[in-house]
Nucleic acid binder design. Structure first.
Lengths: 255, 255
DNA sequence: AAGTGGTCTAGACCACCAC
DNA sequence: TGGTGGTCTAGACCACTTG
């Protein structure tokens, strides 16, 4: 196959020849597909040809084609949906986890179509790990809400929210497919003034991968937030599992 | 091979049987290796057996073994070094990009051994993209510093810093293997009071992958920060490319 | 020189999804 | 039911790192 390798290099040529080694074919293929995305030949949410078709088209094997697709996925330029195919990622949503702005609002403002599903809303007893984070007593009551959120019909985040019932009694009777913060502000006059946000990139595994309908190991961003009011009373602990290509975190710090 | 598949499932069994489908072998293998990390049989920075050895040991092929290793890499539990092998990731460094605390200080405080290398320090003219971000005039002078930083001998981040020469005249004569912020504070009495931090997960590609000595496509976190003083004067633009398993972002927001 | 991961081939069967 | 991605096999050669 040395002949075909030579042709491949000749065909892609262009940049990146700064090093003394050949550019592997899967990176050449990555760049060709990336170019089609950049020029708009492939637009957001449009589906790519199947892996088998791509392998034929570029005269390679599925394994190599998947390497190229995996690169673009890692860069956040493509995503896949279960066994349905590969799609072009839309622009990242710009998100500031330190503000209490509603998901619905900022997605809409950025041109996306948001949707929220409530998967669970129950009352639990505080487990040890949460007692430690919140300062609540282990075994006392806590509200738990689990949601899944979509942008343009794509599930991009799932979250577990734990709310202190002392500050929001009877919360569970509401509909959580709307903004929880708006609810807390308007119904309970709760204001969150002290937030501690922690986040790191990691792979999505079960059960979150299943909830979002992606392959285990898909790159994600884990974000959690502990909110207290101005007296230091614990209000909520929220943990979010995002698809890694869906968001761009933006935080302002003054002082 | 249906026989050997059956044995594999029997051997791992345990959890995750909530769904009606079999757990693929590469995930079983992932869990076995993860267990060795969790129990400390494999400790931070220790090297795993070679891919070929692992494939034999677990009676599978390199491709499948690599799938398992790739999962653990995506989760931030393993990292690889060029063609040297697979290693166990140490704890993530907790990092607050909104504070001006020195890298050296917080790495040391968290039990790591930091090191900084200056790759470049030159004077440039402001390019269009930076002019837009900073408000400086395109074509005016700007200092550029490129560094690479290590923890425990592992290169985990590379950064480009662009400093306004008006607030730090003669900056380039200093040694940048120390904290830049300490330098700015002590030599120029510069205080950064307004910071805008942006970050998102993405793959590391050339040239950053090369600088850090990792395969292109390795998961990373891109962080940038625009700092101004209390009068709104642009001080620096910093962009950092981190290995995704090396850090945990932690931000406090009050008010 | 030997061993490592990096790249690549040419197939196969399975689970799931859309039609 | 046919096509998709998901998983897996059993090899190969290459580039690079290490002793």
């Amino acid at each position: 196959m040395s002949t075909s390798q030579g042709q491949r290099d000749a065909a892609s040529a262009s940049a990146d020849d700064t090093e003394n080694s050949r550019t592997p074919f899967y990176l050449q293929l990555r760049d060709r597909i990336a170019a089609q995305i950049a020029t708009g030949q492939l637009s957001a949410h449009s589906r790519l040809p199947s892996e088998r078709t791509l392998s034929e088209q570029y005269q390679t094997t599925r394994v190599t084609a998947r390497l190229a697709l995996g690169q673009l996925e890692a860069e956040g330029k493509l995503y896949r949906s279960n066994r349905r195919g590969w799609f072009v990622s839309p622009e990242r949503i710009i998100y500031d986890p330190s503000l209490d702005v509603s998901f619905t609002d900022y997605v809409t403002k950025q041109g996306g179509v948001p949707r929220t599903e409530t998967l669970q809303s129950t009352s639990l007893t505080v487990p040890a790990w949460l007692a430690q984070k919140s300062g609540l007593e282990e075994g006392s009551e806590i509200y738990h809400i689990q949601r899944r959120r979509y942008i343009d019909g794509r599930a991009i985040l799932t979250e577990n929210i734990y709310v202190n019932p002392a500050v929001c009694p009877g919360l569970l009777r509401f509909d959580f497919n709307q903004s929880l913060w708006k609810l807390m502000r308007h119904e309970y006059s709760v204001s969150l003034s002290d937030k501690h946000v922690t986040m790191y990139p990691t792979a999505l595994t079960e059960p979150q991968a299943g909830i979002l309908g992606v392959t285990p190991g898909t790159a994600g961003l884990y974000v959690n937030r502990i909110s207290r009011n101005s007296e230091g009373v614990f209000i909520e602990f929220d943990e979010e599992f995002w698809l890694h290509d869906a968001l761009c975190i933006s935080v302002h710090a003054k002082g």
